[in-house]
């Protein structure tokens, strides 16, 4: 990846509608080519075939608009793969393994990414900073139709777009919104939101999916069912009903904290800022949590000498892959902690 370190990843740009609460909106589509086994059953030759079909279709679809970077992941270094994961352009699963696989990324904006030979032949995703699902869907729908003009998708009238895992079948759509919810976390109301979301069959996951504790108070809400509901209905439910409710809830909690517990609120955000400005060793998770509180302080207007863009940049650059990319050398964990603290001090000075 050349020059990637200078561009803030779309999901961390920190602008767009409702950016005080919404980090990013993402729409994903799962697609497979007709007449070729799914990736888990495909031979090496068939995977190569999928790669070339995908490359023809995607590059062809981009056409005169151009600007697609094709990255062969087998040829990419482990560090390059880590950077792609941190920029939310490929999954962790896609970064692993040595079977033929790739990712196509729109350049330079990185808004569209197509993973090739992940669980499905194609996993298209479009990201937008802030809450902007309609725009994200319009782009992914156009990209999907353009690819479909050049290749035949596996489809059945009953089950819709056919996917390797039956939980994705139908529209193959996954809509997710990454939310920054420090207010709900501090007030303890976050569990209510989680329960409400679960009762509506939505998945609520912490940042990066795995751990039970959400890093940096970042939560991702996404739909779980893909059959029997049109794309339009799923999007409308998210954009007009579910997400605005969560945003309002978070804003109310932040306001309450500011009005009724101002010393506590100020202590949380300035303590975080103080630590970031003076620490000499910073762990990755710790940096993220502190940056989360600073972000809340900045968007609330309590911290005035730091801007959201700087905080967003740091949320990305303090991650292990980016840190090593900037330093242009591999570093072990203790070295990274020193380097991370130094970077944060420089940027917040």
């Amino acid at each position: 990846m050349n020059g990637g370190e200078h561009v803030v990843a779309e999901w961390l740009r920190g602008d767009g509608p409702s950016a005080d609460v919404v980090m990013s909106s993402r729409v994903r589509l799962a697609r497979n080519f007709a007449g070729v086994p799914f990736v888990n059953r495909a031979t090496r030759a068939q995977r190569e075939q999928v790669l070339s079909m995908a490359q023809d279709a995607i590059v062809g679809a981009a056409g005169s608009r151009g600007g697609v970077r094709w990255i062969d992941l087998c040829a990419a270094s482990p560090l390059e793969r880590t950077v792609l994961v941190e920029r939310h352009l490929i999954s962790k699963q896609h970064a692993k393994g040595e079977e033929p696989r790739a990712v196509a990324v729109s350049a330079p904006d990185e808004r569209l990414a197509v993973m090739v030979n992940e669980e499905d032949h194609l996993r298209l995703q479009v990201m937008r900073s802030g809450l902007d699902l309609s725009d994200a869907f319009a782009q992914i729908d156009a990209a999907d139709s353009a690819i479909e003009h050049r290749a035949e998708y596996a489809y059945s009238p009953r089950f819709g777009y056919l996917t390797a895992c039956p939980t994705n079948v139908g529209t193959g759509i996954r809509v997710s919104v990454m939310l920054h919810l420090p207010g709900l976390k501090l007030s303890g109301e976050i569990d209510k939101v989680k329960r409400a979301a679960q009762s509506m069959s939505l998945a609520v996951r912490g940042f990066y999916g795995e751990g039970s504790e959400a890093l940096g108070d970042l939560f991702q809400i996404s739909n779980q069912t893909t059959l029997g509901k049109s794309e339009k209905d799923i999007l409308a439910e998210f954009e007009l009903s579910i997400i605005p409710k969560v945003i309002e809830y978070e804003r109310v909690e932040r306001r309450k904290l500011l009005e009724k517990r101002r010393p506590f609120f100020e202590d949380q955000v300035f303590r975080a800022l103080g630590l970031l400005r003076h620490a000499r060793l910073l762990k990755s998770d710790e940096a993220m949590q502190l940056l989360s509180h600073v972000r809340m302080g900045v968007t609330a207007g309590v911290i005035t000498d730091v801007d959201v863009k700087t905080v967003s940049r740091l949320l990305l650059l303090t991650q292990p892959g980016h840190l090593q990319q900037i330093a242009q050398r591999e570093m072990d964990q203790p070295q990274r902690r020193v380097e991370r603290a130094a970077l944060v001090r420089r940027c917040l000075a």
């Binding site: 007709a34 729908d141 999907d144 139709s145 479909e148 003009h149 035949e152 998708y153 489809y155 059945s156 009238p157 009953r158 089950f159 819709g160 777009y161 039956p166 939980t167 079948v169 139908g170 529209t171 759509i173 069959s201 069912t225 893909t226 059959l227 029997g228 509901k229 049109s230 794309e231 339009k232």
Partner: peptide
């Protein structure tokens, strides 16, 4: 897995006589 849904509703491909 899909809350009782049995059939696809939504986008359909233009190709392949679908």
């Amino acid at each position: 897995a899909h809350e009782g849904a049995t059939h696809h509703v939504g986008k359909t491909p233009r190709r392949s006589g679908a």
